[in-house]
Design a protein around this nucleic acid. Structure first.
Lengths: 230, 230
DNA sequence: CGCTGGATTGAGGCCGATCAACTTCAGTGG
DNA sequence: CCACTGAAGTTGATCGGCCTCAATCCAGCG
């Protein structure tokens, strides 16, 4: 499970860097670092399942992860997508177990943060305390656009949200949708067909260019207006 | 704004009790207690508005509060309801200001927790740290049932959720809906008419007894089945 | 090469929104 | 006390957006 090389591009902004030595070879790191283990996940590899004992928070270093729960009718309800630099697992703190499943969408690299060690480490680290509260607070505001009334609004808002979270160089850059139409639909509470239809409609209106998983914004501001319901 | 009497029924379970002396008359309390101020809100009194500077977390001692944001089209989108013992304001930690409005639904009593004092107080209080993380984590799992597909499912799940959060003595007890049909609709992403119709339908099926704001469960388990989509 | 899962496109149906009329209730002032 | 008022709630008729079901297309891959 260990990787020999350690990625750095995310670490600079990571709230746990205060507890995680930057120097891979430092002897100090081995004893004090919060992050003892990295994991590489192949596409569609399970990170955790519902009712699994909560032990770790995870930081996505590279790749993408979806969390979801399976409804009584077998329908898959997506709770969230997590990309490079984002943290998952907070929902499990209160219950003591993960309330749903987490699966990688593509090859993904993650750091494991043992929660019990983190709690011990937290004492006296007022800055880290603040940063963690800040970070969880952010997650309370995720996906507000799920409440948007029309399907066009929700999908436009989703695309804009994605584009910011995938660290694009600019808003006109082409990027890859790591998830399927079905995943998007399960997240936005729409069907895959509806997602497909709206993509086609957006393309006809020259708002985006889309070809399977490759997507590119042509009129970012128009999309924003749609997202806002104007 | 101060009240002379101090309520106790909530305090025993309050995560901030560690930082909040139980004894109203103790001289210690005045200097060390986190909670310096209580506030009584009349019905429909504003607690905070969007963009207001974030200074306090609030604990509801008695009554009910709704948080909401107003969409571009003027539609009021309800983010959450908060009842006795529940905490609101966490969403503001990351932004530094409250991202939406909070208004009381009926006469309501709240405690103000100054966030900056709380942060200072947190140091070395590992139990309090844990409790707060636990408490925010819970809020990440609120309102999952908003994703339920049908209107009947969402409303049934909402009623069940309400009944647990209002501290009813038993599941057959009659209780008061503190919010309007419109509020419920704005929370569940349905119209007030739809809420009214479903209430009528549930009543015809003898699942509930409802008369304006007074409601009573007649077949709790049937409601649970509806909520689960069975 | 054919297989398989994902994506696209079309036809038809249903659930919840919209619009509108009416009732009930709480609050106010004569 | 009752009349008046406006907000909240109920109920009905109609409409439209999204779902369902189905056929076809396409890319990736053994």
């Amino acid at each position: 499970m260990h990787t020999t090389t350690r990625p750095h591009f995310i670490c600079n902004d990571c709230i746990f860097s205060l507890a995680c030595s930057e120097d891979e070879n430092s002897p100090i790191r081995k004893s004090t670092s919060l992050v003892k283990q990295y994991r590489v996940l192949k596409p569609r590899e399970v990170l955790y399942l519902p009712k699994n004992k909560f032990q770790y928070l995870y930081v996505v270093q590279k790749g993408a992860i979806k969390t979801y729960q399976t409804e009584a009718d077998g329908h898959e309800l997506i709770r969230g997508f997590y990309f490079a630099g984002e943290i998952l697992g907070y929902e499990a703190i209160s219950a003591g177990f993960y309330p749903f499943s987490a699966v990688s969408l593509c090859e993904t690299l993650i750091c494991e943060i043992p929660y019990s060690s983190l709690l011990k480490f937290l004492q006296n680290k007022i800055l880290l305390q603040e940063n963690i509260l800040h970070s969880i607070s952010q997650q309370l505001n995720i996906g507000v656009y799920l409440a948007s009334s029309t399907a066009d609004q929700r999908l436009a808002a989703f695309l804009i949200d994605l584009s910011t979270r995938l660290h694009l160089l600019n808003t006109e850059a082409e990027f890859i949708l790591p998830m399927t139409r079905q995943d998007i639909g399960n997240y936005l509470r729409l069907t895959a067909e509806t997602i497909s239809r709206i993509f086609s409609r957006f393309q006809k209106r020259k708002l985006i260019k889309i070809n399977h998983k490759k997507i590119k914004f042509l009129q970012f501001t128009s999309l924003q207006k749609i997202a806002e319901g104007l």
